[in-house]
Nucleic acid binder design. Structure first.
Lengths: 252, 252
DNA sequence: CGTACTATTGAGCGCTCTCAAAACCAGTGG
DNA sequence: CCACTGGTTTTGAGAGCGCTCAATAGTACG
């Protein structure tokens, strides 16, 4: 409170040696001291590999997780091995927010490819946010953002047809990868067709057929898990058909 | 911080003259002083009537709203008058959490019947949570709970058929009303069939047909908007069906 | 090179939507 | 009292999207 030495965006990037913390502290005025305190509670583990769990359904909630590199899927397992994929999480995105309330993980999280993950013990994070108002604000924003994202998915599953769903999925991946400095038109899907279908509420076969159709229509090139968007505008146009433009969540 | 005079549940109920604040302070240890401070920022307006707006899509976000009595629907309007109903909000439930991040309301909220609503200016609430750790924790829980609820809806829209969706809707209404001390088996639906269908991703006709079928099967009695659940267990059983023998998409 | 897995492609069917019309309700005015 | 209006709800018949079942093709890895 005494020396409110606000540091710049670039300083933060440097202070947060990896991209982990940028999720939390990007748009704020944090003192260097604050950033250090935040950095202190972050646990960095060695890289995880495909199939490794961050946590499983039923386990006690202790930490939030931030994807540094790689990708993670969260899913709600049901008896008999059936499951509902809830989300795919890319670098910079945070996992576990839904378990704060009950203090028990309702879903499981496993990495889709070799990934670096940071762990944020929640109780310590909570202590920290109580003493750093701008960090508290950022936590509220993160939680709120998750709600906004879920809302979009509700709209997608409730109102859109198969074609629109896959288009939305591709555009979402494109934007999120672009945000992290990766190519928005040329990327690798770390999840299987099966998982995509499960996520979008579609059968595997439908997903496959749609990829083929998009390919035939010249919207994209697809080879196994490698995707190139040839006509991003055309894909976005598919979204606009049912619901015209949505001028929403536009966070740096 | 000096005198941490923890007050009891009952004291809170009294201190919060209405049910508004119970949402925020129920499960915590707040001092009487804290509760007063929280109470001070709550704005109580005169009752609103069917069709009145709490806020509209596009407006600047300033406050959260808590339903005291009555009911509210939130929806994402699209051009052409089409809309996607995002939720129905009953007494004790909080509205507006999705707008914290962008500071702009992406959805609109209007009351379904004569309702008493409390307004919580968010900036003042935020100041308060910064000085009351247990209140901060409760805010995190509320936000997290909303995410958990959305997750359930994703599962519903992604994997369940029409029958299961309406069953889930009825059970949800029943539970939430019961939580507030109302009858879990005999209640009034303040929303139209059209709004229910919109919410569940179904056509009006499908909703109507399902009500008729449930009625014929002796699961409930329905007269216009008045519903009596005759066999709540039977309705819940409908939910479990898909999970038990789920022949559909499985990813691994 | 064989096994297991994932992805693609095809054919038929079922759930739910769409279109259409009738029934019902509340309010209004002749 | 009754017709008229506008709204919601119910009921019916047909069509289409996406699922299911089934078979083939492609890929990873021993």
């Amino acid at each position: 409170m005494t020396e409110q030495k606000v540091i710049s965006f670039e300083t933060i990037r440097v202070a947060c040696k990896n991209c982990t913390l940028s999720t939390l502290c990007l748009p704020m005025g944090l003192t260097t001291e604050d950033v250090e305190r935040l950095d202190d509670i972050v646990r960095r583990s060695k890289p995880l590999h495909r199939g490794d769990y961050l946590f499983r359904s039923g386990e006690t909630f202790r930490s939030l997780y931030v994807v540094k590199t790689g990708s993670v899927k969260t899913y709600a397992p049901s008896e008999e091995g059936g499951e509902q994929v809830l989300g795919f999480h890319l670098p910079g995105e945070i996992i576990g927010l839904d378990a704060i309330e009950t203090e028990v993980h309702a879903c499981s999280a496993r990495v889709l490819e070799t990934s670096a993950i940071c762990e944020l013990p929640f109780s310590r994070l909570e202590q920290l946010t109580a003493t750093i108002p701008s960090l508290q604000h950022q936590m509220y924003r993160l939680l709120s953002k998750e709600i906004g994202h879920d809302t979009e998915m509700l709209l997608l599953l409730g109102k859109k047809n198969a074609e629109e769903r896959l288009a939305a999925f591709l555009i979402s991946m494109s934007r999120r990868l672009h945000q992290r400095g990766l190519s928005p038109t040329d990327f690798h899907l770390s999840m299987s067709r099966h998982e995509i279908g499960n996520y979008l509420g579609l059968a595997v076969e439908t997903v496959s057929r749609l990829f083929t159709r998009f390919h035939e229509e010249g919207l994209l090139k697809v080879d196994r898990k490698h995707v190139q968007l040839l006509d991003p505008a055309g894909i976005e146009a598919i979204l606009g058909q049912s619901l015209a433009d949505d001028h929403r969540a536009r966070s740096s």
